[in-house]
Design a protein around this nucleic acid. Structure first.
Lengths: 193, 193
DNA sequence: CGTCTATTTGAATGTACTCAAAAGCGGTGG
DNA sequence: CCACCGCTTTTGAGTACATTCAAATAGACG
């Protein structure tokens, strides 16, 4: 598997030597997922955090009524997984599923201690990753609280102009926190303008 | 100022010697805020992260229409501040305000490098703090997306049974993402049962 | 081509919102 | 100690937006 983008992603945040990167590669492994396969199912322990080399994924929660809620999409060069479960060892709340055939580089939670011991710099790298995830999550909460569904949809399109080519409308609706019917009506209204 | 709870908070997550803790104390400072005073105003740089020794606070965002949205409450032994601004150096989105007279221990962003250099273990401590913040934020997003306002209100009461003694109802409504009128009606309905 | 799923459309319903006004409560000064 | 003021909470009426349920249309895939 091509690890170029993975290395670049790390080097953007912390310095890393060839030797260190090779050590890192002994602690992670490639994983292919076919469309609809999952990295983790809700209720299981999330053993891996995945770096997406190719493809796109979604993590979602199924509520008491059986409705799915998309928590996050993952695109190339993003991390995905149930962070809570991975970090705490509790069962995952989310299912993390491939929306198309995907290539991941995955990191097992049992190797976290070894990783931080052998490559202390990675502690900072993961801190930065989590910071970014936190900031993104907070931005999303704010937009949910302070904007209309239409505004959120437009903001999403602005941020990811090609999202509708990759991701089904009902998944986008779920991410926005509305029903597919509601999104369909918003789209119709926007086209009419 | 009494730093016992602060030290305990750290020791729960990482080992720290007397000497290290004393070093840490040279890098932070106590700060008192009177009711309604702010640690940071939206639009300014958030220079400090605050550890709340005593009192309670809220961070909130004011949207285009002038409506305030409570992002987070901070109670004793919690951190508060605009993480995004603190970490990135961009202007804060939130105002972080004391809801009653407060005692904080604050950490200045310019001292972050020095802190991590002198006390490398703190890198892990802050990673854990951010992880927890992320997990909490995500849980909140999920509850906003998958539960009714009434369910969210009941869940909040369960988590913080005494919250209504400390925090005004309209702030709680704002935190729940509804208007004060809507919360008042939910409460009436619950009492009638 | 046929089947299954996704998307669109329609109609009725519901939840929370806005605007407006009344009631309640707490603190301050006379 | 009471009267007043400002702010919070409650209540009412009308409205907007998204939901639910149901059905029709469109697309994707074997």
């Amino acid at each position: 598997m091509d690890t170029t983008s993975y290395r670049k992603h790390i080097e953007k945040r912390i310095p890393i030597t060839d030797e260190e990167f090779n050590t890192l590669l002994t602690l992670v492994k490639p994983l292919s997922l076919k469309k609809k396969e999952a990295l983790v199912h809700a209720g299981e322990l999330c053993e891996y955090q995945g770096y997406i080399v190719k493809g796109c994924m979604r993590s979602y929660l199924t509520d008491q009524k059986g409705t799915e809620h998309v928590i996050q999409f993952g695109f190339e060069d993003w991390y995905i997984g149930d962070m809570m479960s991975f970090l705490t060892g509790k069962p995952a709340d989310y299912t993390v599923e491939a929306l198309e055939n995907c290539e991941l580089i995955v990191f097992h939670r049992n190797q976290a201690d070894e990783l931080y011991e052998k490559l202390p710099g990675m502690e900072r790298y993961f801190r930065i990753m989590i910071q970014n995830a936190f900031i993104a999550m907070q931005a999303r909460l704010i937009s949910t609280m302070s904007q209309s569904a239409e505004q959120r949809y437009l903001a999403l399109l602005e941020k990811f102009p090609k999202i509708e080519l990759q991701i089904a409308q009902h998944h986008i609706a779920s991410y926005l926190g509305i029903t597919p019917e509601a999104l369909s009506r918003i789209r119709r209204k926007l086209v009419q303008k």
